[in-house]
């Protein structure tokens, strides 16, 4: 299966899960919103061009916005993590990203600790920006901090579960 095709299928699948499964879950608490769709950006291959990465993330964010009905909110957060992602990968991995070929960030290719750091930092950054923008429109400081912590934990849990189930193929390390 070609790399592009695989990612398109994955994108559709992740978006479907986000919009028609996670968005339909009855709310547990004001702070808990299961955001999951952005994991698509985290799982794109290492060697993707930076401008392409930015553009894809913007498009993904816009599509999510169509269904959340908040034009630009999720797109802004996605573009931010897409911009930070290459720097973070260079920081966490000793090798140059170009040597990695078509590999994508997984526990095996990056090692468990760098992979976990990578997930936590980008998830936190995504939610921080998203909720900050939301906070600018309404809400209090407690709302901001509480929602940031709760949504980040829920997102990380969802990503962890998916990683256990999906077993994405990778040969390195």
């Amino acid at each position: 299966m070609s790399l592009v095709f695989k990612n398109i299928i994955r994108f559709i699948f992740i978006m479907f899960i986000q919009i028609f499964v996670l968005n339909k879950i009855p709310p547990l608490h004001q702070f808990i919103v299961p955001y999951f769709y952005f994991v698509f950006i985290l799982w794109l291959p290492f060697k993707i061009k930076r401008t392409a990465l930015l553009f894809i993330s913007f498009a993904a964010g816009m599509l999510a916005d169509m269904f959340f009905k908040t034009p630009g909110l999720h797109a802004a957060a996605c573009v931010l993590i897409a911009y930070i992602r290459p720097f973070l990968i260079n920081l966490l991995l000793p090798k140059e990203a170009t040597d990695w070929g078509n590999e994508e960030p997984t526990k095996k290719t990056m090692g468990p600790v760098p992979y976990a750091t990578y997930l936590i930092i980008l998830t936190l950054l995504h939610h921080f920006y998203l909720i900050l923008l939301e906070w600018m429109q309404f809400g209090s400081f407690l709302y901001f901090i509480g929602k940031l912590v709760a949504t980040t934990l829920v997102s990380l849990l969802l990503i962890m579960i998916t990683d256990l189930f999906l077993n994405r193929k990778s040969k390195l390390r």
Partner: peptide, 28 residues
């Protein structure tokens, strides 16, 4: 160029977000 592209996309997203609350009727 990458940074400028980032700023352009970020600006586009934010302008959409903040104009939405005032003028609900946009082409988007």
């Amino acid at each position: 160029s990458v940074f400028i592209f980032f700023l352009v996309l970020q600006g586009l997203a934010l302008s959409m977000l903040f104009s939405y609350n005032r003028f609900h009727q946009t082409a988007y």
